[in-house]
Amino acid sequence: MLLSLNNVEVVYDRVFLAVKSVSIDVGEGGLVALLGANGAGKSTTLKSVSGLLKPERGAVTRGEIAFAGRDLLALDPPERVRAGIAHVLEGRRVFGHLTPEENLLAATTMHGDRAHVKRLMERTFAWFPRLSERARTQAGYLSGGEQQMLAIGRALMTEPKLLLLDEPSLGLAPFLVDEIFDIIRRINKEAGVAVLLVEQNAAAALEVAEVAYVIDNGRVVMNGTAEVVKANPDVEAAYLGGGHSVDFRAVKHYRRRRRWLT
């Protein structure tokens, strides 16, 4: 396994228990989706991997996270990036006052070799031709889709083995969502980068993912291959918008089953 979380518990401000006991595995070159409703603990789980809990006064209080055989919890965030983990944060978070080119350069502090940086830059622009067209405008003025591409491209400049994507489709037009997911699939297949994808758009995420975990109220309540998860009637009702039924028995069934296994 490339990444494995084992019974991870995350507490914010020493009191608020956001993630209770999450175990997730991402294989070498895998594409794993993490689904769930608002506030279920998806983003927190990603931050526990990238180490970005600290600025938000969160901490992993129990469990282990191993990445490529190393204990991640002992590393600070820049070290984790150097180990091969890049986190694309929710809301894109590009450096608004920098140009796209400068955004990409800012993510290359771990590469000493200039020629190598140049190659990475060309690779990124080849993946996102739209960015090269706008390479000299301030990133804050790019469209939402372009910013998302820039955020992903910027993360790829660190040459990750694992890409953590937090809501890449948030606030994008449907055709852009398709384009972004297409890119994610290509990055995964062509560059062999493993992806752990957090999404509220479960339908789109299950299209690209091989394996999916459903997280609810800080716990993993279900996991399996994308097909299995997709076929589950509860997932369908809760996240895929299927099973529109006003049948009273169905509602009861849903309520009973939403207690999951815990």
Binding site: S50, P55, P78, R82, R93, G96, A106, T109, A155, T158
Partner: peptide, 15 residues
């Protein structure tokens, strides 16, 4: 300049 723009995002790309 990246750090001044967004510290969290700077961390996320290894700065």
């Amino acid at each position: 300049r990246a750090v001044s723009d967004d510290q969290g995002a700077s961390w996320s790309v290894g700065i």
